[in-house]
Design a protein around this nucleic acid. Structure first.
Lengths: 213, 213
DNA sequence: CCATGTGAATGCGTTCACAGCC
DNA sequence: GGCTGTGAACGCATTCACATGG
């Protein structure tokens, strides 16, 4: 069940994004190849990892009758979620309410019910009081209490680089399970805290690598 | 020469980040294992891909004398850059000056001389006139002219999702070579334009996958 | 014909193990 | 002893090829 290759998981996350924008209309593996750049072989294999159940297609191996051609988003989407363990709704917060943090405070497309923005934090008490926000804001020293009370599992870490490690440790101590790190530093955290880094600098470099053949 | 595996390239980019923060002091592959979570085997192999030249370590295969133990950042850093084709300085711009875009307009850590922020664009002329910025700002219709005049190669695309595809096409037509896409949509562009997507939603999901075992 | 689905084969990236040098 | 460097072995992900069904 859980022997889905790691790269395949990443691709499935990307497919979810396409399926969201494209409900109703069935998508064939050929369509998806055009949209993603991955071969139709890869896509069919990835989908087959989530247990023969497939989306709702036409023929396939030896299954119940489908309606037409291609994958049915309405069927495939929940199948991916289930296989990846994305059933439960999870709460997250934004830490550091500078330009970047306040941008994500007001970010759309979080309104899908899958994740719930529960709070924002900043060490600058002024900011906390002044900023307009759709969710409650707290000074940073209330992180342990609030993370616990609201059962917040994930944090978007948007503080400046100098403060990132300290903030991350505070979050880890408060029992956070995962951090999306936007600060341009490498965090050292206990292994039970999952980290995903978003390094704009690295994205620029990766592009430079690509475009220099 | 250029048969460095794609995953290895990504790891080397990450190593650059560590080396930048840690000039002078040599780093052993063991140190790097602790910092990155990757095995020392993997790290040594990755570095060996950039042509036997190594950083400046102690022994090694059969090379010139080094100074002490571990990799010398001052030597290793340029070696990685050279192998990855990051020699040339490149100019980039920010498109879409909402909260997110203006955050990146004023982002630090771009000051390393490797990339140069050359301009910002927004379809809202008001914004262009009002915003304070370290670089010149232009209305969106000037993208073709400015991209050409300043020889801008890369764009950070920070416009809302609805506008992203149109803006990306405009950039592509203007001759941009690479786009970092922050909008939560999948872009369809000619293959000569490289794209890297930064989907915060996907990062949240990836973390949710990890923390649900 | 078109499509999906999946075992089997290929190929590639990681891991091992050892050689060389401090 | 420590470390790096690298060919060779391994294992896993991708690709192929074909079976199945509309």
């Amino acid at each position: 069940m859980e022997q889905i290759p790691e790269p395949a998981k990443e691709r499935l996350l990307f497919l979810m994004r396409i399926l969201e924008k494209n409900r109703e209309k069935p998508l064939t593996s050929g369509n998806l190849e055009a949209l993603t750049g991955w071969s139709s072989h890869t896509i069919r294999k990835d989908i087959s990892f989530l247990g023969g159940d497939y989306g709702g297609g036409p023929g396939g191996g030896a299954k119940k009758a489908g309606t037409s051609c291609g994958y049915n988003p309405e069927t495939l989407m929940p199948a991916i979620k289930a296989a990846l363990g994305l059933n439960r709704r999870r709460r997250f917060c934004v830490v550091g309410l500078g330009r970047l943090g306040s941008a994500y405070l007001n970010f759309q497309s979080f309104e899908l019910g899958e994740f719930e923005l529960a709070a924002g934090f900043d060490s600058n008490v002024n900011r906390v009081e002044i900023l307009k926000s759709p969710v409650p804001l707290y000074p940073a020293y209330k992180i342990p209490e609030a993370v616990n009370r609201f059962a917040i599992e994930i944090a978007l870490l948007c503080v400046p680089g100098e403060a990132a490690q300290a903030s991350a440790e505070k979050l880890a101590a408060a029992g956070i399970r995962g951090i999306v790190n936007f600060a341009p530093v490498v965090l050292s955290l206990p292994p039970e805290v999952a980290v995903r880094n978003v390094y704009v600098m690295d994205e620029l470099r990766a592009l430079a690598v690509k475009i220099s053949h």
